[in-house]
Design a binder for these strands. Structure first.
Lengths: 186, 186
DNA sequence: TAAGTTAGTAGACGCACGTTTACTTCGTCA
DNA sequence: TGACGAAGTAAACGTGCGTCTACTAACTTA
């Protein structure tokens, strides 16, 4: 009753990439082993290295695959705090985190990929944010907002989705929006 | 020219504990090996296990050794935001982080110690903070502040002490204080 | 000073990881 | 149809980790 596997290079590559994305997002870099990815992708472990080189290159490709900080930065400037608040609240309350941010907040301890993560946070969050802000200390304000974003990821990971003892989403968004507003105001 | 080591159980224990504190604070749980601690403490590796049991128990003891969130929570209530701001700013700008917080923000990926860290964040930061606040959604407000605190630790680790492109300390404190004020206000 | 206790030591154990090698099987095209 | 390239596989390699065991040597005590 063994299924005969169709030989499909690109398909296998995509299965590996998708499995890696899912696992890195959920568990962080260190906790995800090559064997785990292979099992999740239902592929042979040697193929991962063949298609992606090393583990850190696969991780880099997963990050590169993600769009920029999804859509949050686009839109009218005056609603930016609220969009950030909604993004963070959803990550805090939902049962699964955003791949990029979760990976970031869970993987930054490993020197092997610190450079990759640093670049990603810079280019996908901090710099676009600072660019949008303008005014005095734009970089500082963007940094504080970034700290709040990554910190909420850490909290989510530590305490799970019940970190906030489940107040209504609207309450959380409202609070966060007010905080982001002060963060970002000149 | 070999130094003859004096036999000193308590002294050796303390050297190990202090070396572990320093290393965990700087590098995080995963990156610190038993052999590294032994070398830093100038002690034999087997003694670590003899005196502390396993690595995670040593880590727990290091955390327990630290005072509660040092002094920040004590003092007049109306200056609490500013004290938090100063604490965070100093950690962001100084050349060495706080042991507990650094360990927290760098070590949370490892399931082995997730429980330890969770308890510590709860009992040393979030709960005392929530207790001090009172009013509506005290827990939520404390959580947001905690996210900002831990997030700034992550930033500090990723970008080093020049994360903020070194504006004056006073500017950073001022900004952060305003943000914390909104965080904590009822 | 001899015996016993215990701090300190060297080295090995087992395990899990990322990575690589040697091999097998499938699909294609001359 | 048969040969060749590439997809897929199984097993091993080397490394570094936390932990443990068997031993040595220093101090204490009778």
């Amino acid at each position: 009753m063994e299924e005969v596997r169709r030989r499909d290079r690109e398909g296998t590559r995509q299965r590996i990439l998708e499995a890696a994305r899912r696992l890195f997002a959920e568990l962080g870099y260190d906790q995800v082993t090559m064997r785990l990815i292979a099992a999740e992708a239902d592929a042979n472990i040697a193929l991962i290295n063949r298609y992606f080189g090393a583990k850190r290159e696969l991780f880099a490709e997963v990050l590169a695959m993600q769009g920029r900080f999804p859509g949050v930065l686009e839109g009218p400037q005056e609603e930016l705090p609220r969009r950030l608040a909604e993004y963070v609240a959803d990550r805090l309350l939902s049962d699964r985190g955003s791949p990029v941010m979760a990976a970031l907040s869970r993987s930054s301890a490993t020197p092997e990929i610190q450079g990759i993560i640093k670049d990603r946070v810079s280019s996908a969050i901090m710099e676009p944010l600072a660019g949008r802000l303008g005014g005095e200390d734009a970089r500082l304000r963007a940094s504080i907002a970034t700290a709040l974003i990554t910190g909420s990821g850490t909290l989510r990971q530590l305490f799970g989705q019940d970190a906030l003892e489940a107040p209504a989403r609207e309450v959380v968004v409202e609070r966060l929006a007010r905080v982001f507003e002060v963060c970002l105001a000149p």
